[in-house]
């Protein structure tokens, strides 16, 4: 049972680390603000959640687990809200979304 739990925890951490990294690449390489925001959003909810769940399994039943749940809850509430407000603000600020110019012969 312990081995299984530790495996699950390792898996969560590894997947979280991978998603964080890919999100970071996206934030650097995507062409405009809105696409970058999409990449950042992945790291802020799914990846953060996975890493925190991995830590929770490591922590076991304790006050630490409770605090991790709180952090997860806060991140899950605040990050999408902040992203929403930011996108709304950008759209109202007349920031045009990026549109791919159609290739010839398409």
């Amino acid at each position: 049972m312990d081995i299984l739990l530790s495996l699950v925890s390792q898996f969560c951490l590894a997947l979280g680390a991978f998603l964080i990294f890919s999100g970071g690449v996206g934030v650097l390489r995507f062409p405009d603000f809105y696409t970058r925001m999409h990449a950042a959003g992945v790291t802020e909810t799914l990846a953060a959640g996975l890493i925190l769940v991995g830590l929770m399994i490591l922590a076991g039943w304790s006050l630490v687990l409770f605090k991790l749940v709180l952090i997860l809850l806060f991140i899950m509430i605040t990050s999408p809200t902040a992203s929403h407000a930011l996108a709304k603000s950008a759209l109202h600020g007349k920031l045009e979304p990026f549109r791919q110019v159609k290739q010839e012969g398409e």
Binding site: V27, F33, R36, M37, A40, T43, E44, S89, A90, G93
Partner: peptide, 10 residues
Amino acid sequence: IYDRILAVNL
């Protein structure tokens, strides 16, 4: 500026 805010949030 929005990119910067996004980056700080991240």
